[in-house]
């Protein structure tokens, strides 16, 4: 049985500019897969092709078993799109938006009303359903944006950075809603460049860079595969003397420029021993932090590029 999302050798160019250079991956029913990559990696293009909005040059793409582009009309009935932009009518109320999009999805009047009510409950907006969207907070609008894409309980859910600028509470509600849908059997493709979102939500991730899949797998596997280890950052009152770390297996000095010292830790069980050694050496530890390697670090390790600009210095130093 074909997976709900099948992308095989997908190629797409905008004129002379290559956007996707042979992307392949699958998403199974009930699975949440993260599509990760920096800006311009090809995430939105991939989602656009899957959402039947963009034509592609080569490859094989199928949504809910319907090969594109021939099966686009049938695929649209099975997919739900949550675009990066909050794509709703700002002067209409949340319920009005949902009812319209439900009708646009082919639902009947009564079914549309029921779906709208259910979606409002699911994203926690029932109490503000009648207010014009423009009066809702950014987080509420994001939740509404998600609700508009799940009105018909789609078999395939495409999310393009759905929690950008969302407060933690709204973000968690959105995640819960997505997980609920996945538990219901939906195949979810979650595009983001926020590693923590992927790590929180996705069983698997597909790392994209410059239109190509760099790596794919579980987050832990990707980090491990990149050969990254946790690091321990110490700030001491006095500089630590040379050789203070000697004798501690699984720990290696990475950087030392007083009062900051960075130690690579292959086994986090050695952290107490490292702290004890620092104290013995008269370091007088003022502050410590254990930083585990992230998918961003893995991505940097794999591509030499940061997922986000603000990630670059941190990962570069790691």
């Amino acid at each position: 049985m074909a997976p709900p999302i099948l992308v095989d050798g997908l190629r797409k160019s905008y004129g002379a500019q290559l956007a996707l250079g042979g992307v392949s991956f699958e998403v199974a029913a009930g699975e949440i897969v993260g599509l990760l990559g920096p800006n311009g990696a090809g995430k939105s293009t991939t989602l656009g092709v899957l959402a039947t909005l963009l034509r592609f040059d080569a490859g094989r793409v199928a949504v809910a078993g319907h090969a594109l582009p021939a099966g686009a009309a049938r695929a649209r009935r099975a997919l739900g799109l949550v675009p990066q932009q909050v794509a709703v009518y700002p002067t209409l109320g949340a319920r009005e938006n949902l009812r319209f999009f439900a009708r646009a999805l082919g639902l009947g009047r009564r079914e549309a009303a029921r779906s709208a009510a259910a979606a409002l409950d699911l994203v926690g907006l029932a109490a503000r359903a009648e207010e014009p969207v423009a009066r809702l907070s950014g987080g509420m609008r994001r939740r509404l944006n998600l609700a508009c894409g799940i009105l018909h309980r789609p078999a395939v859910l495409l999310l393009d950075e759905p929690v950008v600028g969302v407060d933690p509470q709204s973000r968690e509600r959105i995640f819960e809603a997505i997980e609920t849908l996945a538990r219901g059997g939906a195949a979810v493709l979650y595009s983001t460049h926020q590693m923590d979102e992927a790590e929180r939500l996705c069983a698997r991730v597909v790392l994209l860079d410059t239109g190509r899949v760099v790596a794919a797998g579980t987050p832990a596997a990707l980090v491990a595969g990149a050969g990254l280890t946790p690091v321990l950052h110490l700030r001491t009152a006095r500089p630590l003397p040379p050789g203070w770390l000697a004798g501690i297996a699984g720990a290696a000095l990475a950087d030392s420029s007083a009062p900051e010292t960075t130690v690579k830790v292959t086994d986090t069980a050695t952290v107490p021993a490292i702290l004890a050694a620092a104290l013995r050496a008269g370091g007088d530890v003022l502050e410590m932090a254990l930083v585990r390697p992230s998918l961003a670090d893995a991505f940097f390790a794999l591509t030499g590029r940061a997922l986000r600009d603000e990630d670059a210095p941190a990962t570069a130093s790691a």
Binding site: L81, Q85, A87
Partner: peptide, 13 residues
């Protein structure tokens, strides 16, 4: 600009 055109284009309408 609201993105609703794209959204509707991904729907059966």
């Amino acid at each position: 600009e609201w993105g609703t055109l794209e959204r509707v284009r991904s729907m059966p309408m």
